[in-house]
């Protein structure tokens, strides 16, 4: 008798749980269909609101005009450039440093890499959410990536992209001698929580225009 009652309760409880989940998914499904675009715009706006546009004034980043070598670097954690990918309509602030707190505000620049114009590898990264790098996976070979700094404008052309594991740091090497811009974000943008995959774009320097040069 007791077993029969327990079975009845369990059955009723399971039925209630299933009904509750169905109602919840239907409810949010309708909301998503009706307000998807608005939600994306709202989420993107909310994501961007917190961006700290503390800019480093051009006098704070100094470059030797003859050697084009940086002699005064931006303060860690401050914005010193913007990253533009015209083909994807991406225009984002770039901050020196790659702490998780910095990545909340825009593109991070690994301090274990060089700066645009220094002739070495540059490593940038950003979150894969809407308003940052969610569209990066759609980038084409030969697309342009432009980095605008207070000391110059640097144009890179994409020659490769790969999906790598987060432990494969040898796939984003720091080298001197050739200026390669590497930009990565987490792969599988619909992932709930952490992911081990990274989508990396590789681009070679095509053109440099230093400020003050005609």
């Amino acid at each position: 008798m007791l077993n029969k009652n327990v079975k009845t309760i369990i059955k009723a409880t399971m039925k209630s749980i299933i009904v509750a989940f169905i109602y919840s998914f239907l409810f949010f499904g309708v909301l998503f269909i009706c307000f998807n675009k608005s939600y994306k715009e709202l989420k993107s706006t909310i994501d961007l609101i917190s961006i700290n546009n503390k800019e480093v004034s051009s006098k704070d980043v100094l470059i030797d005009e003859e050697s084009h070598k940086l002699v005064v670097y931006p303060e860690y954690g401050t914005k010193y450039a913007t990253l533009q990918i015209p083909s994807l309509n991406i225009d984002l602030p770039v901050f020196f440093g790659d702490s998780m707190s910095i990545l909340k505000h825009g593109i991070g620049h690994s301090s274990s890499s060089y700066f645009p114009g220094e002739g070495g590898s540059i490593l940038y990264m950003g979150h894969n959410n809407v308003g940052v790098l969610s569209k990066l996976k759609n980038i084409d070979i030969n697309s342009e990536i432009i980095v605008q700094t207070s000391y110059g404008k640097f144009t890179y052309k994409v020659y490769d992209h790969q999906i790598i594991n987060y432990k494969e740091t040898d796939k984003v090497p720091t080298n001197k001698g050739e200026e390669i811009l590497m930009l990565y974000t987490c792969f599988q943008t619909s992932t709930f929580g952490h992911t081990e995959k990274r989508f990396v774009v590789y681009a070679k320097l095509e053109n440099s225009e230093y400020r003050g040069e005609e």
């Binding site: 009723a12 409880t13 209630s16 749980i17 009904v19 509750a20 989940f21 109602y23 919840s24 998914f25 949010f28 998503f32 939600y39 989420k43 790659d98 998780m100 990545l103 991070g108 990264m125 950003g126 979150h127 894969n128 959410n129 790098l133 790598i164 987060y166 432990k167 494969e168 740091t169 984003v172 990565y184 974000t185 987490c186 599988q188 943008t189 619909s190 992932t191 709930f192 929580g193 952490h194 992911t195 990274r198």
Partner: peptide
């Protein structure tokens, strides 16, 4: 290693929490 640059799906979290709360309410009411 490379930084964690993914973001949790806020909508999925919200739905799950509401679903669990809704379930609990229904069960208790029964």
């Amino acid at each position: 290693y490379l930084k964690q640059t993914g973001t949790a799906n806020v909508l999925a979290i919200t739905m799950s929490v509401v679903a669990i709360l809704g379930t609990g309410t229904l069960v208790l009411r029964k």
